[in-house]
Design a protein around this nucleic acid. Structure first.
Length: 669
RNA sequence: GCGCCCAUAGCUCAGUUGGAUAGAGCAUCUGCCUUCUAAGCAGAGGGUCGCAGGUUCGAAUCCUGCUGGGCGUACCA
């Protein structure tokens, strides 16, 4: 029977509830072994359907019943008597024909949670020995056009995952890789230089939203290539010039790439996404990362030169599971080109070098420069020459997560295969493709946005976003629409100074957007629906934010009337009886206590949607509580104190959950 | 062709440990603002968990086959 928490990665902190369940597991495993002579590696817990039935349930008696051929309820009864005297557990019951249901000590757990929250731990207890550094690579937008909704899904997944890991006490380095020497940049350079005949000076003089300008240029360049063979040749020529560097075309490419990078950073800052390092592909090339990796790959025979057939003149990697001696024509299908016949390197090739560097296995390092941003968060970029500043020690990770959409699974597997071929088995095992499905547009949405569709596309459930066709919803446009709508809602409710109203509208817009993109499971294709994305009602970020704002208002009003909230680390006399008598309120507290457990699960299954679901259900339970109990007018001071404590616990957990989702709690809503 | 993924309420989705009566939101309908803000709350209707077998005390969940759809299999990424 698999463990509740699956394969453990060494996290820095342990959820409070987990300490209780671990104790319980230890005791029960021993007693099962002694009573029935059966050994399990671990026990799996579930949550009972109703809080009246307890907080934890074990279905282990059903499995034992079959093995020892006795009724499950009888077995559960025997185990119950063994587990009744553990710290933190109030009582044990047998229910549902054989479930072992545990009722926790409500007062003790609530007090522990309050103390933990007071110490900014939110229910996590410190565990010794955190693991090594984790690198999370995300965003990675080709710096040749404006960011679109698909990129936003990537960035929010990556960013919230990073927030979760850091919450659990892990050291995390966030890298946003810039493919500034790739084909896509070259395409825009061809568009500007060859199609529009513009010089660097002329391009530099282009005002307004440069990423939007390039969006259109990129969408037109396919046509340009199709017009003549000569046009098409500019692609390869330009790419070679860009890779080589030190020529006007390369200079233009770098101007384009870095200006677009600035635009992307600005877009991501709007939704609270930050990075630690911007590794550039140009440095992978110019600092000979690729040359070194290439030499290693050749020495190990992981790549070989092809002098006949369709891959003639290329260096390739054989991707067949077991390399077989087959006729050329057949093995060709299993070859992935690493170096093209014109001598340029594919993305995968450069990515192998980059991945080796992330683990500190290349024996080379970048130079670094500070990259100025106004976020307060230090950002660095790789450079051929440093600026003398004291850069942190980048790279040298124990584990690497690459947040990349599922369509690139094949390429990611080749990178890992490259590591394996070089003998870096542990690093290959610790290279994790954080895979997620794309964001697509429904045909209806395309109509609404004025994109023409073919008859064939019209029949599909959704159409892929395509930068090449200029088909997609730009990130900034969507954010603008969200902010505008939110501003309208704010103004309808409050008369506030313009600046404050806008600040609140921004927080709501970000809350709506990030929640919308995170709430789906990773392998669900998001068929983008504008109406749904713009919604602030129901299961949305603003719903959760609203609950947090309501909770905050109670404390604001309390202070305005000159009263004080009960301290989190107080003795709270009478709390035990209060929680025993109020199942619904206890259910709310218990849900608040589960928070770190959810984060821990996410660190293992990478499903950020579970954090959304958690925050939403906590907000839902809070709204129910808020509706039923009028706190400030409560006459009984003791009861009022308990209610305030509950609000405080929930509010702090809600705020932290929102923080991990990358959402802020506005001052009012 | 081969590989991976998906199919759950009218719509969009949870249900990643095989467990108790399959859950949310939206939409529809009925109520609730003199209150710590109604971006809220309460209630109603709505299900052959794609189909057919199998394993199991127990299957939306695991296995096999089928049907329908998506993605990948580029000298793009």
């Amino acid at each position: 029977m698999p463990s509740l928490y699956g394969k453990q990665i060494t996290d820095g902190k342990t959820p409070m509830l987990l300490t209780i369940t671990r104790n319980l597991e230890k005791t029960l495993l021993r007693s099962i072994s002694e009573r029935y002579g059966i050994r399990y590696d671990s026990l799996s817990y579930t949550v009972p359907p109703k809080i009246e039935l307890g907080e934890l349930a074990l279905p282990v008696a059903f499995d034992l019943a079959r093995r020892v051929r006795r009724p499950p309820a009888q077995i559960a009864g025997e185990l119950a008597s063994d587990a009744g005297r553990l710290p933190g557990i109030g009582r044990v019951e047998v229910a549902g024909g054989g479930y072992l249901n545990f009722h926790l000590d409500r007062g003790a757990l609530a007090r522990d949670l309050a103390r933990s929250i007071g110490r900014e731990r939110f229910g996590c207890e410190t565990d010794p020995g955190p693991g090594g550094k984790i690198i999370v690579e995300h965003t990675n937008i080709n710096p040749n056009k404006a960011a679109h909704i698909g990129h936003l899904r990537n960035a929010t997944l990556g960013d919230s995952f990073v927030r979760c890991l850091r919450f659990l006490g892990r050291e995390v380095e966030v890298q946003n890789y810039l493919d500034n020497t790739g084909v896509q940049v070259a395409d825009v350079v061809v568009g500007l230089e060859r199609m529009q005949n513009r010089t660097l000076e002329e391009v530099a003089a282009i005002g307004g939203k440069f990423d939007y300008v390039c969006w259109d240029v990129y969408a037109q360049v396919s046509d340009f290539y199709q017009r003549s063979e000569e046009n098409k040749q500019w692609r390869s020529r330009t790419l070679q010039a860009v890779e080589a560097g030190g020529n006007p075309t390369a200079e233009l490419a770098q101007h384009v790439a870095m200006r677009i990078v600035d635009a992307h950073l600005a877009t991501m800052e709007r939704i609270n996404v930050r990075y630690d390092l911007l590794p550039r592909e140009s440095e992978i090339l110019h600092l000979h990362f690729w040359d070194t990796a290439f030499r290693l790959l050749k020495e190990r025979g992981a790549v070989y030169y092809v002098d006949e057939g369709k891959n003639r003149g290329c260096w390739v990697m054989n991707t067949a599971e077991a390399p077989v001696e087959a006729p050329r024509a057949e093995s060709e299908d299993d070859e992935k080109i690493i170096v093209r016949s014109d001598g340029t390197v594919t993305y995968v090739g450069k990515d192998i070098a980059y991945q080796l560097w992330k683990f500190g296995m290349l024996g080379l390092d970048f130079q670094y420069r500070k990259y100025p941003r106004e976020t307060g968060h230090p950002l660095w970029i790789t450079a051929a020459e440093g600026d003398g500043a004291d850069a942190p020690r980048f790279g040298h990770a124990e584990r690497v997560y690459n947040v990349i959409d599922s369509r690139q699974a094949y390429l990611q597997s080749i990178v890992v295969q490259g590591l394996r071929a070089l003998g870096y088995t542990a690093q290959a095992d610790n290279s994790i493709h954080f895979s997620y499905e794309m964001v697509a547009l429904t045909p209806a949405c395309c109509d609404e946005l004025g994109f023409p569709l073919t008859e064939q596309d019209r029949k599909r459930p959704y159409v892929e976003v395509s930068g090449r066709k200029g088909l997609g919803v730009k990130a900034d446009d969507l954010l603008d629409a969200l902010e505008l709508k939110a501003l309208g809602e704010v103004r309808a409710r409050h008369s506030l100074p313009e600046e404050e109203a806008r600040r609140i509208a921004r927080a709501i817009a970000v809350g709506a957007l990030r929640y919308f993109l995170l709430r789906f499971s990773r392998n669900t294709v998001i068929a983008f629906d504008l109406r749904e994305a713009l919604s602030f009602d129901g299961e949305t970020g603003p719903y959760v934010q609203y609950a947090a704002v309501r909770a905050g208002n109670i404390f604001r009003k309390l202070e305005e009337s000159g009263e004080k909230a009960p301290p989190l680390e107080g003795a709270h006399p009478g709390l035990d009886a209060f929680l025993e008598e109020n199942d619904e309120i206890w259910d709310l507290v218990c849900q608040a206590a589960r928070f770190p457990e959810i984060v821990r699960q996410i660190s293992q299954n990478l499903e950020l949607g579970q954090l959304c679901k958690y925050a939403f259900s906590l907000a839902q339970k809070f709204n129910l509580f808020y509706h039923k109990h009028h706190i400030l007018s409560e006459a009984d001071p003791l009861r009022k104190g308990h209610l305030l404590l509950v609000v405080d616990l929930v509010r702090r957990q809600l705020e932290k959950a929102l923080d991990l989702l990358g959402c802020e709690v506005p001052a009012r809503m």
